[in-house]
Design a protein around this nucleic acid. Structure first.
Lengths: 137, 137, 137, 137
DNA sequence: GTGGTCTAGACCACA
DNA sequence: GTGGTCTAGACCACC
């Protein structure tokens, strides 16, 4: 009914390797951080998302459940899903520690595969450099 | 019984998240790269591996089949499994490209979460530095 | 439920001596060759195949993995398994070269058994003729 | 002891795809057919064969057991293995029917893989022709 | 002893 | 629902 303000539009990168539900969570988080989404804003309904990006409803459900579990968002039955109050602070911290852990896991994998430390270091440096150039492009 | 040349001993990291059979493949690849395994060398039999690292025979078999499919190794029924001739070239590329892809996915995840490029870059640099210090320790 | 497009139905020859998983691979290859299966078409799910031909899920999975390793097919977790784009070229060669090798082995066996070449030749011709008549029957 | 007359020397084709024990059987059969081996002739002992062609003793045993089961040969404990009397007739017939069955199986495989009859026929004819040319070479 | 195939089941992440 | 990994065990041909 109150579909007037679409608040956020999801987009999908099918080739990124990232799980779909994770992309959705990330985009909401991103929206909150850059101010597109504010406390109390309504997220599109599951059905709307499904028609937008042609994805399985269960996948959207999972993303919404995940966000709710973190406290990023609150779902009210029969009404909709809304951005929580003051989610900004921990959102960022939570994300960083999660990413840091993932990067640690990546390094552990590389080491346990027998790659030399110097090669791993150079891969990290190379990625870092590429990223810096991409932004100044 | 006295198989004399133990060629390679597998070790398992149960917490790495990497599938067991992939760990085995990586370790053989590693062994070939550092010269512990050479063309014609015999890998331990499936049953030997099973008794070494307490894993299901099928899992080991799966790893061996994978290596054979890539051409890294050749299995002869009733005889054993042997390192192929001239496997060196692609061996290195395979593993590195896999890890590079995983790192790219990590960056994609970070970017799509709304993390600023500078933060990501600093995380990469920090990890790289930590790794270098760990080796000189 | 109403998956509508049955794309391919597997059949099994339990007495052919060919491993079940190889029969499945061959039949998909055949389906692609005769145009029943085209790029992007969905293969029946592992569980569907299981209920069709009464075989263990792992066996079907093995066949699907084999096809994926060759590049004939691509499996997406949670979605299904789909025929790859442009698989036609090598598809034909693969099967034929395999059969040709088997026929060479048969001849080698016959020769090394001391059968005269003329007898072998006549056996081949006889088989060939029988096959032609069977088709015009 | 009576190693004076070596009667038959085995050779192995490692790339033929034929099982080793089968090659041994075939060679004895061949030897009988061309008259190199006659009724009562002694086959080399398992140990002699092992030292000749570097093969597992069990493999030689299996070949000898197989020949004995067919009646081609008779083993006397502590003495040796000897060619049976009048083995020629059925030896040939037995072999031919066996080969014919194998060829039928090959055709069945080809058909069940979805190869067209005409392609199979042409493969057979091609093999037959190649074989004829090889002999007139 | 060796690897190869298959069955019968479990649990997981993802859609 | 989908495929992916793994366990526990069987039987086979071959060495």
């Amino acid at each position: 009914m109150d579909s007037g303000n679409p608040t956020i539009r999801f987009r999908l990168d099918r080739h990124s390797g990232l799980p779909v539900y994770r992309q959705l969570v990330n985009q909401v988080r991103h929206g909150i951080q850059i101010g597109v989404l504010r406390a109390g804003d309504k997220l599109p309904s599951v059905r709307e998302v499904v028609s937008q990006i042609a994805v399985n409803p269960n996948t959207v459900h999972k993303a919404y459940r995940e966000m709710e579990a973190i406290g990023m968002v609150r779902g009210e039955a029969g009404v909709g899903t809304f951005v929580s109050a003051q989610p900004q602070q921990w959102v960022a911290q939570d994300l960083e520690s999660e990413l840091r852990a993932a990067l640690e896991a990546w390094i552990a994998n590389a080491l346990s595969s027998g790659l030399s430390t110097s090669v791993i270091v150079s891969m990290l440096n190379q990625a870092s450099t590429m990223l810096e150039q991409r932004v100044s492009r």
